[in-house]
């Protein structure tokens, strides 16, 4: 069937916009592709392409500095996630539910770590830790990470608390459940998707953080991003590319598995 002039025009615009979107995606994916490609580079430092090898995937496990910083980052990310999600969940509910003096100030304060450049907060925390004599290490990094993870968690979860929430809690108490039973049986399950995305976000933010960790880590142990930053001067070795490639693949696989599980669950229900 012949297309009308208007349909032709629409089709042309459609093609052009798809090309545009493709180009934007290309620019965003190029660094990821290059990063992965150079994990197979047969060279001690990544100066130029020197042939294909998979040796770095075996060798990275004997790079003790790399592996220990990876574990350190994972532990810190898990702990910050747990702390931030607990405080964030309870806080989001409290800030949504109750009225009190200074609530507006707290709400505004939550936006500071989200908006103000991270370096400012990192420096401010460093000065105050020095002042009170807190030695730098895992504790100081955890405080730093939670300080920006908590606001994100609160904002994410607050957005998921529906207007019905108060009524559902009332219904639960009306049926004889006390506050704790109500929280565990009604409130938490209804906001669970929000809690999960807050957890995912907190983990990602903490795991990928450079600025706060770099300022607050002290001399003993670096997180993975801090190690990479310090390697930058001498050159980043291909085993780091290999490790990063593995991490990306793990995350993407997990995401795909998750969406498959979600879909099959939905199908079962329908």
């Amino acid at each position: 069937m012949a297309l009308t002039r208007r349909e032709k025009k629409e089709k042309r615009i459609n093609i052009l916009s798809n090309i545009y979107a493709f180009l934007v995606y290309a620019v965003l994916y190029i660094p990821v592709a290059v990063m992965m490609a150079f994990s197979f580079n047969n060279q001690r430092y990544n100066y130029y392409w020197n042939g294909f090898t998979t040796q770095w995937y075996a060798k990275l496990f004997s790079n003790s500095a790399l592996i220990s910083s990876l574990w350190y980052s994972i532990i810190i990310a898990i702990l910050s996630t747990i702390i931030s999600v607990c405080i964030g969940t309870i806080g989001a509910l409290g800030l949504k539910k109750y009225e009190f003096k200074g609530k507006k100030a707290i709400n505004n304060m939550l936006y500071i770590p989200i908006i103000v450049p991270e370096i400012v907060l990192a420096v401010a925390l460093l000065i105050i830790f020095m002042k009170v004599g807190l030695s730098l290490g895992m504790g100081s990094i955890l405080i730093g990470h939670c300080t920006f993870c908590i606001p994100y968690a609160v904002v994410t979860i607050k957005g998921r608390i529906s207007g019905d929430n108060d009524t559902l809690e009332e219904a639960s108490m009306d049926l004889g459940a006390n506050r704790i039973q109500t929280f565990l049986r009604v409130t938490l399950p209804t906001i669970f998707p929000g809690v999960m995305s807050a957890a995912f976000l907190s983990f990602t933010l903490s795991f990928d953080d450079v600025v706060m960790s770099n300022m607050l880590s002290g001399a003993r142990q670096s997180t993975l991003p801090v190690l990479i930053l310090s390697m930058n001067k001498s050159g980043i070795t291909p085993d780091v590319n290999a490790l990063t490639t593995i991490m990306v693949l793990v995350i993407v696989t997990a995401m795909i598995l998750n969406s498959i599980i979600q879909r099959s669950l939905k199908k079962k229900k329908g």
Binding site: I90, G94, I106, M109, I127, R179
Partner: peptide, 27 residues
């Protein structure tokens, strides 16, 4: 319940955001 729910997040923000930022202005 009010204190238990809104307290931790408020305390955290005051201790680790407001006070450090005020202190940095002093410094």
């Amino acid at each position: 319940p009010k204190l238990a729910m809104a307290g931790p997040v408020s305390l955290w923000m005051i201790l680790f955001v407001t006070i450090p930022l005020l202190y940095i202005i002093v410094i």
